[in-house]
């Protein structure tokens, strides 16, 4: 059996990659994907911990996270479509009329 710590290391690296993606990438769709990576890193951690702890709370929470992530992406993509109709771009730097 693979030890839990390896799973947590993997999930921590995925989480860090997700953060870097959000901070570095400029395409809003890639930013979304990076956020998904962060959420799925958490899911991996939940499942690994649930096995280690011997209860299913963590596995239950994973379902909620998946549902919430889907809802978030649905709203996000809808917003992106309307913005793309206006601006013909998905670049987060170009989407910056509000500032001051």
């Amino acid at each position: 059996m693979v030890e839990t710590s390896y799973y947590i290391l993997l999930s921590a690296s995925l989480f860090t990659l997700g953060i870097l993606g959000v901070l570095v990438r400029r395409n809003a769709i890639v930013v979304f994907m990076s956020v998904e990576l962060m959420l799925n890193a958490a899911n991996l951690a939940f499942v690994a911990f649930a096995r280690q702890q011997g209860n299913i709370d963590g596995q239950v929470l994973v379902f909620f996270v998946i549902t919430v992530a889907a809802a978030e992406v649905a709203v996000g993509l809808a917003l992106l479509v309307t913005i793309f109709r206006n601006k013909q771009t998905a670049d987060v730097d170009a989407i910056s009329q509000l500032h001051g």
């Binding site: 947590i8 959000v22 956020v35 962060m38 959420l39 996270v65 978030e72």
Partner: peptide
């Protein structure tokens, strides 16, 4: 908000662990 949710849920995962 989604970025923040990522932190929140990963934090919850670690607390659970």
């Amino acid at each position: 908000g989604a970025f923040a949710a990522g932190f929140l849920i990963y934090g919850i995962a670690l607390i659970y662990g």
